[in-house]
Every structure is written in C-alpha cells, then in structure tokens.
Amino acid sequence: METLMAFTVGGLFAAAIYMMLRRSIVKLVIGLVLLSNAANLLLFTQAGLLRGAPPLVPEGAMQPAGVVADPLAQALILTAIVIGFGVLAFAVVLIHRAYEVVQADDMDQMKDTDT
C-alpha cells in the first residue's frame, strides 16, 4: 500500500509541476491545487497507513485496546486542507482580477515586472 501511495504522490507532484510550467494562468491554479494535495497525501502516508480503531481509551483502562490510528496526522492534514482552501480561494480571486487587468490567460503577457 505504501508503494502505491508513493507512486501516487510522485505522480501528483509531477502533474502539478507540469501544469505549473504551462503558460496559462488557469492551469497554474490547477497545478497549485495538485501540489497542495500531493503534500497532504505525503503527510498522510508518512504517518503510517493502517486500518486502526479511533484512538479512544475505554472507560477504566489506561491505554486504548488494540491498534489505533494516529489522530495527529489527520489533524495536521485537516489544518493543511483548511489553509490550502483559504489560500486557493485567494489565488482564484487574484487570477480573476489579473485576467481582468491584463486581458489575457497567458503568462508570457505578464513580463512587465521581470527584470
């Protein structure tokens, strides 16, 4: 399972970079979405893949019975997804505004600030 996930993560990163290297700014956004998903998936895989029970300690016991899933990694990914959502919303607004100003969906038209 880890091997499969490793290939998935690698594929997502590759696709993200490919999309970001295109000239269209819409594809740039798609690339950014893929990139953040790839990072989240990597984090998820790193924390260990197992079908565990929720990490709850039964009443009266001192430790959970049996194998439990790691809740921390899921909390991290949730946080990262929320942050990614906020940033992505901003990026969409930005690109919409940039499109209105520049009137083109082409990175090559946006070289004024380059040196």
């Binding site: 700014i25 690109i95 505004r97 940039a98 520049v102 070289k111 004024d112 600030t113």
Partner: peptide, 8 residues
Amino acid sequence: RAQMEGAI
C-alpha cells in the same frame, strides 16, 4: 497591473 503580475 504591475501589482497583479508581481503577485502571481
């Protein structure tokens, strides 16, 4: 305009 380009 320059701000949009820089920001991207």
